[in-house]
């Protein structure tokens, strides 16, 4: 029985572990290998070239443009999402008429694939007949239709707004989970102590929600940093690479331009960044678990 207890759980874990290691581990090693070689556009490896691929990446102005846009994209989408989601979660956590319906509506964008959302918006934003133009013209806000996606600056802004829209449900969900775990008696005690609703938000909600806000930031950074479909479907990084972020640029290099060595190098760089964020996330989660374990003991 003793020996069984050691092996049985391992036997239960190993099959899944093998699949994950194979599907996730092999590509990482392959990318590392490829990034150090000269690669033909059909994928043949033609011998080691050291860090040439990386040098080429760093010498590429499009890489730096995409990187800059990735930072803007990630920071604005994450901050915008947080700023909208926290008040929404606080409202949805309170009791009011139609709360069930409100929750369903707010969560809707999550249910729909980013691809479909982006396709619909691409049509809605159509410069000639798009229904956004129709709406704004009906409201008298403008006289002429606007080509929303024809110019990079405007297209990128619109994509950021849609990025925020689709990130709200997930973030709100994290916050709702956090809010429901807040101790009700703290609020009652503070009411007895004479706190206003703003005081409660400032001195109870915000500090207690901090771990959830941290997790929401890290998870959103990871998701948004990696998000391809919105920009890909709406503008494919265009016009003239003007809305390219790293993932779209990477995808073009790999599957359009056949620059596999360079694409592998960018993949590895992104993998490193992702790993860094993931480690932060894991540290946050384990710290949270330790805290709650300590609370459980007390």
């Amino acid at each position: 029985m003793k020996s069984l207890n050691g092996f049985k759980p391992l036997a239960m874990i190993v099959p899944g572990l093998l699949l994950a290691m194979f599907i996730i581990g092999y590509p990482v090693l392959d990318l590392a290998n490829t990034s150090l070689q000269e690669v033909s556009r059909f994928g043949q490896l033609r011998g080691f070239t050291g860090l040439d691929n990386f040098a080429e990446v760093f010498a590429d102005p499009l890489f730096w443009d995409s990187l800059e846009r990735t930072v803007i994209w990630t920071v604005t989408v994450v901050l915008g999402t947080l700023a909208i989601s926290l008040p929404i979660a606080i409202i949805l956590n309170d009791d009011f008429y139609g709360r069930g319906l409100a929750r369903v509506i707010i969560m809707l964008p999550w249910a729909i694939s980013l691809t479909m959302t982006a396709v619909v918006w691409r049509w809605a934003l159509n410069g000639r007949a798009g229904l956004l133009n129709a709406t704004l013209m009906d409201m008298g806000l403008m006289a002429e239709p606007i080509e929303w996606l024809a110019e990079a600056q405007l297209a990128f802004t619109v994509e950021i707004l849609i990025g925020i829209l689709v990130s709200i449900p997930f973030t709100t969900t994290i916050f709702l989970g956090g809010l429901s775990s807040l101790p009700q008696d703290s609020y009652e005690a503070s009411m007895v102590d004479g706190a206003t609703r703003w005081d409660q938000f400032r001195h109870i909600t915000l500090p207690l929600m901090k771990p959830f806000i941290n997790i929401a930031i890290v998870l959103n950074v990871i998701y948004v940093f990696n998000s391809l479909p919105i920009i890909w479907v709406m503008t494919e990084g265009g016009p003239a690479n003007g809305t390219d972020i790293l993932v779209t640029y990477l995808y073009k290099l790999a599957f359009r331009f056949g620059q596999l060595g360079k694409a592998s190098a960018i993949s590895l760089i992104m993998f490193g960044v992702l790993l860094l964020f993931t480690i932060i996330y894991v540290a946050l989660v384990t710290r949270g678990e330790k805290d709650s374990a300590a609370k459980g003991d007390a």
Binding site: A20, P27, L31, Y223, L274, V282
Partner: peptide
């Protein structure tokens, strides 16, 4: 936790080669 965060897009080229 780490694989949960691993996004296919970063590995897409490696996955394709696999």
């Amino acid at each position: 936790l780490m694989t949960q965060m691993m996004s296919p897009i970063v590995l897409v080229l490696g996955l394709f080669r696999l």
